[in-house]
Design a protein around this nucleic acid. Sequence first.
DNA 1: TCACAAGCTAAAGAAATGCTAAACTTTACT
DNA 2: AGTAAAGTTTAGCATTTCTTTAGCTTGTGA
Lengths: 224, 224
Amino acid sequence: MKRILLIEDDPEIAHLLQLELGEAGYTVDWASGGMSGLVRLREAVPDLVILDLGLPDLDGGEVARRIRAGYEVPIIVLTAADAVERKVSLLSDGADDYMVKPFHPAELMARIQVQLRHREGGEQVSVGGLEVHLAKRQVLYGGQELRLSPKEFELLSLLVSRTGKVFSRQEIEEHLWGRQLERDSNVVDVHIANLRSKLREAGAYGYLRTVRGVGYALRQREAE
Amino acid sequence: MKRILLIEDDPEIAHLLQLELGEAGYTVDWASGGMSGLVRLREAVPDLVILDLGLPDLDGGEVARRIRAGYEVPIIVLTAADAVERKVSLLSDGADDYMVKPFHPAELMARIQVQLRHREGGEQVSVGGLEVHLAKRQVLYGGQELRLSPKEFELLSLLVSRTGKVFSRQEIEEHLWGRQLERDSNVVDVHIANLRSKLREAGAYGYLRTVRGVGYALRQREAE
DNA sequence: TCACAAGCTAAAGAAATGCTAAACTTTACT
DNA sequence: AGTAAAGTTTAGCATTTCTTTAGCTTGTGA
Protein backbone atom coordinates (compact mmCIF):
# COMPACT_ATOMS: atom_id res chain seq x y z
CA MET A 1 0.00 0.00 0.00
CA LYS A 2 1.43 3.34 -1.06
CA ARG A 3 1.32 6.31 1.33
CA ILE A 4 0.76 9.82 0.02
CA LEU A 5 1.29 12.99 2.05
CA LEU A 6 -1.04 15.78 0.95
CA ILE A 7 0.00 19.30 1.95
CA GLU A 8 -2.96 21.55 1.13
CA ASP A 9 -4.57 24.41 3.03
CA ASP A 10 -7.96 24.38 1.32
CA PRO A 11 -10.08 21.81 3.23
CA GLU A 12 -12.46 21.39 0.35
CA ILE A 13 -9.82 20.36 -2.18
CA ALA A 14 -8.06 18.28 0.44
CA HIS A 15 -11.22 16.37 1.17
CA LEU A 16 -11.97 15.77 -2.47
CA LEU A 17 -8.48 14.48 -3.18
CA GLN A 18 -8.52 12.34 -0.08
CA LEU A 19 -11.62 10.61 -1.38
CA GLU A 20 -10.29 10.14 -4.90
CA LEU A 21 -6.91 8.87 -3.81
CA GLY A 22 -8.42 6.66 -1.17
CA GLU A 23 -10.64 5.04 -3.76
CA ALA A 24 -7.59 4.42 -5.92
CA GLY A 25 -6.06 2.48 -3.09
CA TYR A 26 -3.65 4.98 -1.62
CA THR A 27 -3.35 5.83 2.06
CA VAL A 28 -3.60 9.60 2.37
CA ASP A 29 -2.10 11.70 5.13
CA TRP A 30 -3.27 15.31 5.20
CA ALA A 31 -1.40 18.34 6.51
CA SER A 32 -2.96 21.79 6.25
CA GLY A 33 0.23 23.84 6.25
CA GLY A 34 3.89 23.79 5.25
CA MET A 35 5.24 23.41 8.76
CA SER A 36 2.87 20.67 9.80
CA GLY A 37 3.59 18.95 6.49
CA LEU A 38 7.30 18.84 7.22
CA VAL A 39 6.61 17.48 10.71
CA ARG A 40 4.31 14.80 9.32
CA LEU A 41 6.97 13.85 6.78
CA ARG A 42 9.48 13.25 9.51
CA GLU A 43 7.10 11.05 11.49
CA ALA A 44 6.38 8.74 8.59
CA VAL A 45 8.08 9.10 5.23
CA PRO A 46 5.46 8.70 2.52
CA ASP A 47 5.98 7.27 -0.97
CA LEU A 48 4.95 10.55 -2.57
CA VAL A 49 4.12 14.15 -1.62
CA ILE A 50 1.45 16.34 -3.17
CA LEU A 51 2.21 19.94 -2.33
CA ASP A 52 -0.02 22.95 -2.85
CA LEU A 53 1.91 26.12 -3.57
CA GLY A 54 -0.50 28.59 -2.03
CA LEU A 55 0.17 27.82 1.59
CA PRO A 56 -0.45 30.46 4.24
CA ASP A 57 2.62 29.85 6.37
CA LEU A 58 5.55 28.91 4.12
CA ASP A 59 6.45 29.48 0.49
CA GLY A 60 5.90 26.37 -1.60
CA GLY A 61 9.35 26.44 -3.14
CA GLU A 62 10.82 26.62 0.32
CA VAL A 63 8.87 23.56 1.41
CA ALA A 64 9.95 21.65 -1.67
CA ARG A 65 13.58 22.51 -1.07
CA ARG A 66 13.42 21.44 2.57
CA ILE A 67 11.81 18.15 1.72
CA ARG A 68 14.32 17.52 -1.01
CA ALA A 69 17.20 18.37 1.30
CA GLY A 70 16.48 15.37 3.45
CA TYR A 71 14.37 12.93 1.43
CA GLU A 72 14.25 11.26 -1.94
CA VAL A 73 10.48 11.17 -2.05
CA PRO A 74 8.86 12.41 -5.29
CA ILE A 75 6.98 15.71 -5.09
CA ILE A 76 4.07 16.80 -7.24
CA VAL A 77 3.23 20.47 -6.95
CA LEU A 78 -0.24 21.96 -7.39
CA THR A 79 -0.12 25.52 -8.66
CA ALA A 80 -2.62 28.23 -9.58
CA ALA A 81 -2.97 29.14 -13.25
CA ASP A 82 -1.21 32.47 -12.80
CA ALA A 83 1.96 30.90 -11.46
CA VAL A 84 2.76 28.84 -14.51
CA GLU A 85 5.93 30.75 -15.27
CA ARG A 86 7.36 29.54 -12.00
CA LYS A 87 7.50 25.97 -13.21
CA VAL A 88 11.17 26.03 -14.05
CA SER A 89 12.29 27.31 -10.68
CA LEU A 90 9.97 24.86 -9.04
CA LEU A 91 11.51 21.95 -10.83
CA SER A 92 14.95 23.02 -9.79
CA ASP A 93 13.70 23.46 -6.21
CA GLY A 94 13.14 19.75 -6.21
CA ALA A 95 9.63 19.26 -7.51
CA ASP A 96 9.27 16.30 -9.85
CA ASP A 97 6.07 17.35 -11.52
CA TYR A 98 3.50 20.13 -11.34
CA MET A 99 -0.17 20.48 -12.12
CA VAL A 100 -2.06 23.65 -12.84
CA LYS A 101 -5.34 24.11 -11.00
CA PRO A 102 -8.01 23.30 -11.76
CA PHE A 103 -7.11 19.85 -13.02
CA HIS A 104 -8.87 16.61 -13.69
CA PRO A 105 -8.34 14.08 -10.88
CA ALA A 106 -7.63 11.35 -13.43
CA GLU A 107 -4.65 13.29 -14.69
CA LEU A 108 -3.28 13.67 -11.21
CA MET A 109 -3.71 9.94 -10.77
CA ALA A 110 -1.75 9.24 -13.93
CA ARG A 111 1.10 11.47 -12.84
CA ILE A 112 1.23 9.88 -9.44
CA GLN A 113 1.64 6.52 -11.09
CA VAL A 114 4.39 7.84 -13.30
CA GLN A 115 6.31 9.17 -10.34
CA LEU A 116 5.93 6.05 -8.29
CA ARG A 117 7.03 3.94 -11.18
CA HIS A 118 10.12 6.10 -11.60
CA ARG A 119 11.25 5.39 -8.10
CA GLU A 120 10.52 1.73 -8.14
CA GLY A 121 12.50 1.23 -11.30
CA GLY A 122 15.70 1.92 -9.42
CA GLU A 123 17.28 -1.43 -9.98
CA GLN A 124 16.49 -1.66 -13.62
CA VAL A 125 18.94 -1.78 -16.43
CA SER A 126 18.25 -1.98 -20.09
CA VAL A 127 20.06 -2.55 -23.33
CA GLY A 128 18.06 -2.04 -26.41
CA GLY A 129 14.63 -3.49 -25.77
CA LEU A 130 15.92 -5.77 -23.05
CA GLU A 131 14.93 -4.74 -19.53
CA VAL A 132 16.42 -6.46 -16.54
CA HIS A 133 14.86 -5.82 -13.12
CA LEU A 134 17.37 -7.00 -10.57
CA ALA A 135 15.10 -6.72 -7.55
CA LYS A 136 12.14 -8.42 -9.20
CA ARG A 137 14.36 -11.01 -10.85
CA GLN A 138 12.46 -10.30 -13.98
CA VAL A 139 13.49 -9.87 -17.58
CA LEU A 140 11.27 -8.22 -20.15
CA TYR A 141 11.67 -7.97 -23.86
CA GLY A 142 9.14 -5.91 -25.73
CA GLY A 143 6.98 -5.92 -22.62
CA GLN A 144 6.91 -9.70 -22.65
CA GLU A 145 8.36 -11.61 -19.73
CA LEU A 146 11.09 -14.17 -20.21
CA ARG A 147 11.22 -17.33 -18.12
CA LEU A 148 14.84 -17.78 -17.17
CA SER A 149 16.42 -20.32 -14.87
CA PRO A 150 18.43 -18.95 -11.91
CA LYS A 151 21.78 -19.45 -13.61
CA GLU A 152 20.52 -17.85 -16.79
CA PHE A 153 19.24 -14.86 -14.87
CA GLU A 154 22.48 -14.39 -12.97
CA LEU A 155 24.42 -14.68 -16.16
CA LEU A 156 22.33 -12.05 -17.87
CA SER A 157 22.51 -9.79 -14.80
CA LEU A 158 26.27 -10.00 -14.78
CA LEU A 159 26.56 -9.17 -18.45
CA VAL A 160 24.08 -6.32 -18.25
CA SER A 161 25.87 -4.82 -15.25
CA ARG A 162 28.54 -3.57 -17.59
CA THR A 163 27.09 -3.37 -21.03
CA GLY A 164 29.66 -3.83 -23.71
CA LYS A 165 32.37 -5.24 -21.49
CA VAL A 166 33.61 -8.64 -22.48
CA PHE A 167 33.48 -11.12 -19.62
CA SER A 168 35.89 -14.01 -19.80
CA ARG A 169 34.65 -17.47 -18.92
CA GLN A 170 36.81 -17.26 -15.85
CA GLU A 171 35.17 -14.04 -14.69
CA ILE A 172 31.76 -15.53 -15.29
CA GLU A 173 32.67 -18.62 -13.30
CA GLU A 174 33.90 -16.52 -10.39
CA HIS A 175 30.66 -14.54 -10.34
CA LEU A 176 28.21 -17.39 -10.78
CA TRP A 177 30.00 -20.16 -8.93
CA GLY A 178 32.34 -18.21 -6.68
CA ARG A 179 35.28 -20.19 -7.96
CA GLN A 180 36.92 -21.42 -11.09
CA LEU A 181 35.61 -24.62 -12.57
CA GLU A 182 37.66 -27.43 -14.09
CA ARG A 183 39.78 -26.37 -16.96
CA ASP A 184 37.85 -28.19 -19.62
CA SER A 185 34.32 -27.56 -18.40
CA ASN A 186 32.07 -25.85 -20.84
CA VAL A 187 29.16 -25.18 -18.49
CA VAL A 188 29.39 -21.52 -19.21
CA ASP A 189 29.08 -22.15 -22.92
CA VAL A 190 26.02 -24.27 -22.35
CA HIS A 191 24.29 -21.70 -20.17
CA ILE A 192 25.13 -19.05 -22.70
CA ALA A 193 23.60 -21.20 -25.40
CA ASN A 194 20.43 -21.78 -23.36
CA LEU A 195 20.10 -18.12 -22.48
CA ARG A 196 20.69 -17.17 -26.07
CA SER A 197 18.03 -19.53 -27.30
CA LYS A 198 15.47 -18.15 -24.85
CA LEU A 199 16.35 -14.64 -25.88
CA ARG A 200 16.00 -15.52 -29.52
CA GLU A 201 12.70 -17.22 -28.88
CA ALA A 202 11.41 -13.89 -27.56
CA GLY A 203 12.85 -12.04 -30.53
CA ALA A 204 15.83 -10.61 -28.68
CA TYR A 205 18.54 -11.93 -30.94
CA GLY A 206 21.80 -10.21 -31.57
CA TYR A 207 22.45 -8.83 -28.11
CA LEU A 208 24.42 -11.64 -26.55
CA ARG A 209 27.64 -11.78 -28.45
CA THR A 210 30.59 -14.11 -28.49
CA VAL A 211 33.99 -12.55 -28.57
CA ARG A 212 36.17 -15.30 -29.88
CA GLY A 213 39.19 -16.12 -27.79
CA VAL A 214 37.99 -13.98 -24.90
CA GLY A 215 34.43 -14.45 -23.70
CA TYR A 216 30.95 -13.01 -23.98
CA ALA A 217 29.38 -9.56 -23.93
CA LEU A 218 26.01 -7.91 -24.07
CA ARG A 219 25.97 -5.31 -26.77
CA GLN A 220 23.67 -3.29 -28.90
CA ARG A 221 21.90 -5.54 -31.31
CA GLU A 222 23.69 -6.66 -34.41
CA ALA A 223 22.19 -8.09 -37.53
CA GLU A 224 21.76 -11.83 -37.15
CA MET B 1 35.45 15.90 -20.18
CA LYS B 2 32.34 14.12 -21.38
CA ARG B 3 30.37 15.51 -24.32
CA ILE B 4 26.60 15.28 -24.39
CA LEU B 5 24.50 15.99 -27.46
CA LEU B 6 21.09 17.34 -26.53
CA ILE B 7 18.43 17.06 -29.22
CA GLU B 8 15.48 19.10 -27.94
CA ASP B 9 13.16 21.54 -29.66
CA ASP B 10 11.86 23.39 -26.60
CA PRO B 11 14.40 26.15 -25.95
CA GLU B 12 13.30 26.53 -22.34
CA ILE B 13 13.95 22.92 -21.41
CA ALA B 14 17.11 22.90 -23.48
CA HIS B 15 18.41 25.90 -21.65
CA LEU B 16 17.58 24.47 -18.25
CA LEU B 17 19.29 21.18 -19.04
CA GLN B 18 22.26 22.92 -20.53
CA LEU B 19 22.74 24.77 -17.26
CA GLU B 20 22.29 21.72 -15.08
CA LEU B 21 24.51 19.49 -17.17
CA GLY B 22 27.12 22.19 -17.53
CA GLU B 23 27.29 22.57 -13.76
CA ALA B 24 27.77 18.85 -13.45
CA GLY B 25 30.84 19.14 -15.62
CA TYR B 26 29.54 17.98 -18.98
CA THR B 27 30.07 19.75 -22.27
CA VAL B 28 26.67 20.20 -23.85
CA ASP B 29 26.02 20.51 -27.54
CA TRP B 30 22.46 21.53 -28.38
CA ALA B 31 20.57 20.74 -31.56
CA SER B 32 16.99 21.94 -31.92
CA GLY B 33 15.81 19.35 -34.41
CA GLY B 34 16.31 15.77 -35.50
CA MET B 35 18.11 16.58 -38.71
CA SER B 36 20.49 19.07 -37.20
CA GLY B 37 21.09 16.61 -34.38
CA LEU B 38 22.19 13.95 -36.82
CA VAL B 39 24.46 16.43 -38.56
CA ARG B 40 26.00 17.48 -35.25
CA LEU B 41 26.56 13.87 -34.34
CA ARG B 42 28.52 13.27 -37.48
CA GLU B 43 30.71 16.29 -36.88
CA ALA B 44 31.72 15.21 -33.41
CA VAL B 45 30.59 11.95 -31.87
CA PRO B 46 29.48 12.67 -28.29
CA ASP B 47 29.71 10.34 -25.29
CA LEU B 48 25.95 10.35 -24.85
CA VAL B 49 22.81 11.58 -26.59
CA ILE B 50 19.72 12.98 -24.90
CA LEU B 51 16.87 12.87 -27.37
CA ASP B 52 13.48 14.50 -27.02
CA LEU B 53 10.73 12.59 -28.73
CA GLY B 54 8.49 15.48 -29.64
CA LEU B 55 10.60 16.92 -32.41
CA PRO B 56 8.97 18.95 -35.15
CA ASP B 57 10.93 17.61 -38.10
CA LEU B 58 11.62 13.91 -37.56
CA ASP B 59 10.02 11.15 -35.54
CA GLY B 60 12.03 10.42 -32.44
CA GLY B 61 12.16 6.71 -33.04
CA GLU B 62 13.49 7.37 -36.52
CA VAL B 63 16.24 9.56 -35.11
CA ALA B 64 17.16 6.91 -32.54
CA ARG B 65 17.32 4.25 -35.22
CA ARG B 66 19.51 6.33 -37.47
CA ILE B 67 21.91 7.14 -34.68
CA ARG B 68 22.06 3.51 -33.67
CA ALA B 69 22.64 2.41 -37.23
CA GLY B 70 26.00 4.09 -37.32
CA TYR B 71 27.13 4.69 -33.75
CA GLU B 72 27.48 2.92 -30.43
CA VAL B 73 26.76 6.02 -28.37
CA PRO B 74 24.18 5.59 -25.55
CA ILE B 75 20.82 7.29 -26.05
CA ILE B 76 18.48 8.53 -23.33
CA VAL B 77 15.04 9.45 -24.59
CA LEU B 78 12.80 12.11 -23.08
CA THR B 79 9.14 11.43 -23.60
CA ALA B 80 5.87 13.10 -22.68
CA ALA B 81 3.69 11.44 -20.04
CA ASP B 82 1.07 10.45 -22.58
CA ALA B 83 3.53 8.48 -24.69
CA VAL B 84 4.57 6.05 -22.02
CA GLU B 85 3.25 3.10 -23.95
CA ARG B 86 5.76 3.82 -26.70
CA LYS B 87 8.66 2.97 -24.48
CA VAL B 88 8.86 -0.56 -25.73
CA SER B 89 9.23 0.35 -29.37
CA LEU B 90 11.64 3.08 -28.38
CA LEU B 91 13.89 0.74 -26.54
CA SER B 92 13.99 -1.57 -29.49
CA ASP B 93 14.72 1.37 -31.76
CA GLY B 94 18.00 1.60 -29.93
CA ALA B 95 17.32 3.83 -26.95
CA ASP B 96 19.11 2.72 -23.80
CA ASP B 97 16.89 4.43 -21.29
CA TYR B 98 13.89 6.70 -21.25
CA MET B 99 12.55 9.36 -18.92
CA VAL B 100 9.01 10.60 -18.67
CA LYS B 101 8.58 14.36 -18.63
CA PRO B 102 8.57 16.19 -16.43
CA PHE B 103 11.37 14.69 -14.43
CA HIS B 104 13.72 15.79 -11.75
CA PRO B 105 17.09 16.84 -13.15
CA ALA B 106 18.85 14.82 -10.47
CA GLU B 107 17.28 11.67 -11.80
CA LEU B 108 18.43 12.45 -15.32
CA MET B 109 21.89 13.02 -13.92
CA ALA B 110 21.84 9.64 -12.25
CA ARG B 111 20.79 7.89 -15.43
CA ILE B 112 23.44 9.64 -17.43
CA GLN B 113 26.04 8.35 -15.03
CA VAL B 114 24.67 4.84 -15.28
CA GLN B 115 24.89 4.93 -19.06
CA LEU B 116 28.36 6.40 -19.16
CA ARG B 117 29.61 3.91 -16.60
CA HIS B 118 28.18 1.10 -18.66
CA ARG B 119 29.93 2.26 -21.75
CA GLU B 120 33.28 3.03 -20.27
CA GLY B 121 35.53 0.07 -20.40
CA GLY B 122 37.77 1.96 -18.05
CA GLU B 123 40.86 1.80 -20.16
CA GLN B 124 40.57 3.38 -23.51
CA VAL B 125 43.28 4.64 -25.79
CA SER B 126 43.04 6.52 -29.02
CA VAL B 127 45.13 7.79 -31.88
CA GLY B 128 43.50 10.07 -34.34
CA GLY B 129 40.01 8.75 -34.85
CA LEU B 130 41.03 5.27 -33.79
CA GLU B 131 39.70 4.24 -30.40
CA VAL B 132 40.76 1.05 -28.68
CA HIS B 133 38.70 -0.14 -25.69
CA LEU B 134 40.57 -2.83 -23.84
CA ALA B 135 37.72 -4.05 -21.60
CA LYS B 136 35.24 -4.13 -24.42
CA ARG B 137 37.81 -5.59 -26.78
CA GLN B 138 36.45 -3.18 -29.25
CA VAL B 139 38.02 -0.94 -31.83
CA LEU B 140 36.10 1.97 -33.23
CA TYR B 141 37.00 4.19 -36.13
CA GLY B 142 34.76 7.21 -36.47
CA GLY B 143 32.19 5.49 -34.25
CA GLN B 144 32.15 2.44 -36.48
CA GLU B 145 33.17 -0.94 -35.09
CA LEU B 146 35.96 -3.03 -36.56
CA ARG B 147 35.89 -6.81 -36.43
CA LEU B 148 39.35 -7.99 -35.48
CA SER B 149 40.63 -11.46 -34.68
CA PRO B 150 42.26 -12.00 -31.27
CA LYS B 151 45.81 -11.71 -32.59
CA GLU B 152 44.95 -8.62 -34.57
CA PHE B 153 43.39 -7.00 -31.54
CA GLU B 154 46.36 -7.79 -29.32
CA LEU B 155 48.71 -6.49 -31.93
CA LEU B 156 46.84 -3.22 -32.26
CA SER B 157 46.60 -2.93 -28.46
CA LEU B 158 50.34 -3.32 -28.17
CA LEU B 159 51.10 -0.72 -30.81
CA VAL B 160 48.59 1.74 -29.45
CA SER B 161 49.98 1.36 -25.92
CA ARG B 162 53.01 3.38 -26.94
CA THR B 163 51.93 5.46 -29.85
CA GLY B 164 54.80 6.40 -32.07
CA LYS B 165 57.21 3.83 -30.70
CA VAL B 166 58.62 1.41 -33.23
CA PHE B 167 58.18 -2.19 -32.12
CA SER B 168 60.62 -4.72 -33.51
CA ARG B 169 59.29 -8.05 -34.68
CA GLN B 170 61.04 -9.60 -31.73
CA GLU B 171 59.24 -7.38 -29.23
CA ILE B 172 55.94 -8.13 -30.88
CA GLU B 173 56.60 -11.85 -30.72
CA GLU B 174 57.42 -11.65 -27.03
CA HIS B 175 54.19 -9.80 -26.28
CA LEU B 176 51.83 -11.85 -28.40
CA TRP B 177 53.37 -15.29 -28.10
CA GLY B 178 55.42 -14.92 -24.93
CA ARG B 179 58.50 -16.14 -26.74
CA GLN B 180 60.50 -15.68 -29.89
CA LEU B 181 59.38 -17.56 -32.94
CA GLU B 182 61.58 -19.31 -35.47
CA ARG B 183 63.98 -17.05 -37.22
CA ASP B 184 62.36 -17.26 -40.62
CA SER B 185 58.73 -17.03 -39.56
CA ASN B 186 56.80 -14.15 -40.99
CA VAL B 187 53.67 -14.55 -38.89
CA VAL B 188 54.02 -11.05 -37.58
CA ASP B 189 54.14 -9.66 -41.09
CA VAL B 190 51.02 -11.58 -41.99
CA HIS B 191 49.06 -10.35 -39.00
CA ILE B 192 50.23 -6.82 -39.66
CA ALA B 193 49.03 -7.15 -43.22
CA ASN B 194 45.64 -8.49 -42.15
CA LEU B 195 45.21 -5.77 -39.54
CA ARG B 196 46.24 -3.14 -42.01
CA SER B 197 43.74 -4.32 -44.56
CA LYS B 198 40.91 -4.28 -42.03
CA LEU B 199 41.88 -0.79 -40.95
CA ARG B 200 41.99 0.41 -44.51
CA GLU B 201 38.64 -1.17 -45.22
CA ALA B 202 37.19 1.04 -42.46
CA GLY B 203 38.93 4.09 -43.83
CA ALA B 204 41.68 4.15 -41.23
CA TYR B 205 44.65 4.02 -43.54
CA GLY B 206 47.96 5.64 -42.83
CA TYR B 207 48.22 4.89 -39.14
CA LEU B 208 50.02 1.57 -39.16
CA ARG B 209 53.45 2.22 -40.55
CA THR B 210 56.38 0.06 -41.48
CA VAL B 211 59.81 1.21 -40.42
CA ARG B 212 62.13 -0.60 -42.72
CA GLY B 213 64.83 -2.59 -41.06
CA VAL B 214 63.32 -2.05 -37.60
CA GLY B 215 59.67 -2.92 -37.20
CA TYR B 216 56.22 -1.37 -37.02
CA ALA B 217 54.65 1.64 -35.34
CA LEU B 218 51.30 3.34 -34.93
CA ARG B 219 51.60 7.00 -35.82
CA GLN B 220 49.49 9.95 -36.71
CA ARG B 221 48.02 9.48 -40.11
CA GLU B 222 50.11 10.15 -43.16
CA ALA B 223 48.94 10.62 -46.71
CA GLU B 224 48.66 7.28 -48.42
C1' DT C 1 70.46 0.73 -63.42
C1' DC C 2 70.99 -3.51 -61.20
C1' DA C 3 71.05 -6.73 -57.46
C1' DC C 4 69.73 -8.02 -53.12
C1' DA C 5 67.59 -7.69 -48.94
C1' DA C 6 63.34 -6.54 -46.65
C1' DG C 7 58.73 -6.59 -46.78
C1' DC C 8 54.14 -7.90 -48.81
C1' DT C 9 50.49 -11.04 -50.47
C1' DA C 10 47.63 -14.99 -51.39
C1' DA C 11 46.54 -19.50 -50.67
C1' DA C 12 46.39 -23.95 -48.29
C1' DG C 13 46.81 -26.93 -44.47
C1' DA C 14 46.80 -27.12 -39.35
C1' DA C 15 45.11 -25.87 -35.03
C1' DA C 16 42.20 -23.79 -31.86
C1' DT C 17 37.79 -22.33 -30.44
C1' DG C 18 33.01 -22.43 -29.90
C1' DC C 19 28.40 -24.69 -30.80
C1' DT C 20 25.01 -28.28 -30.28
C1' DA C 21 22.55 -32.28 -28.89
C1' DA C 22 21.99 -35.71 -25.83
C1' DA C 23 22.84 -38.30 -21.79
C1' DC C 24 23.64 -38.06 -17.09
C1' DT C 25 23.44 -35.91 -12.26
C1' DT C 26 21.74 -33.10 -8.92
C1' DT C 27 18.16 -30.42 -6.62
C1' DA C 28 13.63 -29.03 -5.10
C1' DC C 29 9.07 -30.11 -4.54
C1' DT C 30 5.04 -33.37 -4.06
C1' DA D 1 9.94 -42.36 -3.32
C1' DG D 2 8.65 -40.05 -7.61
C1' DT D 3 8.68 -36.30 -10.67
C1' DA D 4 10.08 -32.20 -12.97
C1' DA D 5 13.27 -28.70 -13.50
C1' DA D 6 17.84 -27.17 -13.57
C1' DG D 7 22.71 -28.02 -13.94
C1' DT D 8 26.74 -30.56 -15.80
C1' DT D 9 29.47 -33.50 -18.76
C1' DT D 10 30.68 -35.55 -23.01
C1' DA D 11 31.77 -35.92 -27.68
C1' DG D 12 31.43 -34.79 -32.47
C1' DC D 13 30.89 -31.08 -35.76
C1' DA D 14 31.45 -26.43 -37.88
C1' DT D 15 33.81 -22.32 -38.15
C1' DT D 16 37.30 -19.10 -37.46
C1' DT D 17 41.88 -18.09 -36.84
C1' DC D 18 46.77 -19.11 -37.14
C1' DT D 19 50.85 -20.54 -39.46
C1' DT D 20 53.57 -21.81 -43.21
C1' DT D 21 54.98 -21.65 -47.84
C1' DA D 22 56.29 -19.65 -52.01
C1' DG D 23 56.34 -16.25 -55.22
C1' DC D 24 56.01 -11.21 -55.88
C1' DT D 25 56.97 -6.16 -55.00
C1' DT D 26 59.50 -2.41 -53.25
C1' DG D 27 63.28 0.21 -51.53
C1' DT D 28 68.28 1.01 -51.12
C1' DG D 29 73.08 1.18 -51.97
C1' DA D 30 76.84 -0.06 -55.22
